[in-house]
Design a protein around this nucleic acid. Structure first.
Lengths: 343, 343
DNA sequence: TAGCAAACTCAAAGCGCTTTGAATTTCGAG
DNA sequence: CTCGAAATTCAAAGCGCTTTGAGTTTGCTA
């Protein structure tokens, strides 16, 4: 039998007001009284009824999530990992989710409906596209939100958390160039997503700075799956002058790429170098590859957790996090990169 | 500005009671009145405040989900797909989730805490293990739940949704036997999960019935990843007498297995046959493999959706679904199976 | 020792819905 | 017509919490 506020207050010989205030950290409550309340809570196992809190405060205590279900989106692996982070943090604050699986064409409507329903007090957007209309829409919605990623060619005047994709792939490409590679291929994520665009730009910049051309035919966009990675790499390897190095936008893509490399009998790290972006998926660790992969690393789960923290802090008006964060990915060198082979 | 019940009732010149009843389908309300209410709802865009509903009814309107985060669990791909189904159905009834990422050793505690918190009114359990103590625990918790899968060697006296894994792999193995295969390998999921155990049993039964031995050394358990699939298949192919056919517990495993097969230059469907279980993952379709895969098919997303429907119906005490369901997987023959090669 | 601000505590009014128990209408039978 | 049952509708009491506005104490100052 769970106690409620009223009973707790009676037990303590206090009013509900005081107990409530003691629990919610209001200053106008005697330190000693607060201690009494706190220990009573511990004894009785009192847990405030969330529905009542929500009703009283007008806060829904939940975050709206639009889960992409399109085939073209790498919803599965990466989304799951991100969600774990989000969930981890949310549960700590007793926040709920409203998960809306939605096809891309319905997403805007889904967001609107969610916001209008009053059943969530924050929204979250991911898989940002080049000039994403959803961001403007979210801004107009007068409900807190955080974007995972950020748009291109739009003022970044909204809350976001992104990794510096440009820098990550700039660093990766530069390493390869320093190792003597001249023909570097890119197996990227979907062409319309901003992280793909930025990664390509980072690579281009590194090439330019070193007076090297960027060969469009050595750049492919694909879904973030093993299969597409394999296919893309295969095509690259069939060329007259195959690349001596390749950048992959995900370890999942790298999985397929490595497979294609092995198939033609090339030795990874010797005959051909590979750097992949590592989202730190527990199921696919770069160090577990038969030749451990050099990667640009940034944990997707950490990002999820951080976004939840920011969203919740915004809702509860507690603490303050920066409104915009750009995380730097670490470049971690393992065995899949080596000097360009003498040609 | 959203209207609330009170305002709506005033507009209609009715009491809140009547409007509420009209909306919730109570019989004692005049058909004509109900129509008036309904059209007023449409005009005003009235949406009941869920927090108030929850408080008044005592129902939390949300489902507790323990999300496995262990490395050993195929949380990612399969869980994501399942979740999409769950979300799809839940959102239709305006139900929330409480997602608790949790390591296996903490799962029981997590469930207990969830149930005790009163913030969820149903729980959901997946990744059932052989003699799973969590089921008994759930039964003791006096909160509705549905198990995805079912235990072994325990009375199945609890609500579950499972697929007939035994039958699926029995069917698959029998097909291979009919095609003349004698050495059939199995690349299964984790050894402690019930679906793995049943699939193995199904295969064993098919062999027995045809007077064939089951070769333990041709059976492997692994994580449901490409990598492990590849490794397992590779080992099988290195044997003196490699198998002429293989069953895979997931298309993800099959991905790796096919890779290993290609690597040694064998032709799938001719030199060696393969049947995989297909959870209908949008990112990995058996028909997209270079040699389309014969599969036992059962949609994970459909299962998620169904479980949500059952859970919600139980909570709302509407409609009635069977308490226990055993879905039959379909055996779909494609090009990856063929007659056993003459030896 | 009075007087007042500061420090605490409290009663009561919602938050928006469901639901109980009673009141009012409507209607067919007598 | 009249009356009781059936059909509708209603007022009001919660659900458990937060928060406003108003006490009550306490601690100093003068």
């Amino acid at each position: 039998m769970n106690v409620n506020l009223k009973q707790l207050a009676e037990m303590l010989g206090l009013s509900q007001t005081t107990v409530s205030r003691a629990l919610n950290g209001y200053p106008e409550v005697n330190a000693e009284t607060r201690q009494r309340v706190l220990s009573a809570v511990r004894e009785t196992g009192y847990r405030p009824n969330r529905a009542a809190q929500r009703l009283a405060t007008g806060r829904a205590g939940s975050i709206g999530l639009v889960m992409p279900i399109a085939q073209g989106i790498d919803s599965d692996v990466h989304f799951g990992e991100f969600l774990a982070g989000l969930g981890e943090e949310s549960v700590r604050h007793d926040f709920h989710f409203v998960i809306n699986p939605s096809a891309p064409e319905d997403e805007e409507a889904t967001f609107k409906r969610l916001a209008a329903s009053g059943n969530v007090d924050a929204l979250f957007l991911a898989y940002v596209r080049a000039n994403d209309p959803r961001i403007a829409m979210l801004k107009s919605l007068s409900i807190p939100f955080v974007v995972h990623g950020r748009a291109i060619e739009q003022p970044a005047d909204y809350p976001f958390l992104d990794i510096d994709n440009t820098a990550a792939f700039y660093d990766a490409a530069r390493l390869l160039i320093q190792l003597g590679h001249r023909r570097i291929a890119l197996i990227n994520g979907p062409a319309n997503l901003t992280f793909s665009i930025r990664r390509k730009k980072g690579m281009q910049r590194a090439l330019e700075e070193n007076g090297l051309p960027f060969d469009e035919s050595l750049s492919q966009h694909s879904l973030m799956t093993d299969e597409y990675g394999h296919r893309a790499m295969q095509q690259f390897l069939e060329r007259d002058e195959p690349p001596t190095a390749v950048l992959c936008s995900s370890t999942v893509i790298a999985l397929g790429a490595v497979r294609a490399i092995n198939k033609v009998g090339l030795q990874l790290g010797t005959d051909i170098s590979l750097i992949a972006h590592d989202d730190v998926l527990p199921m696919l660790k770069p160090e577990n590859f038969s030749v451990p992969l050099t990667t640009t690393r940034s944990s997707l789960r950490a990002a999820g957790s951080r976004i939840a923290a920011r969203l919740i802090s915004r809702i509860m008006k507690t603490g303050d996090y920066p409104d915009q964060e750009l995380w730097r990915a670490e470049l971690i060198v393992r065995a899949s990169t080596g000097p360009a082979p003498k040609s």
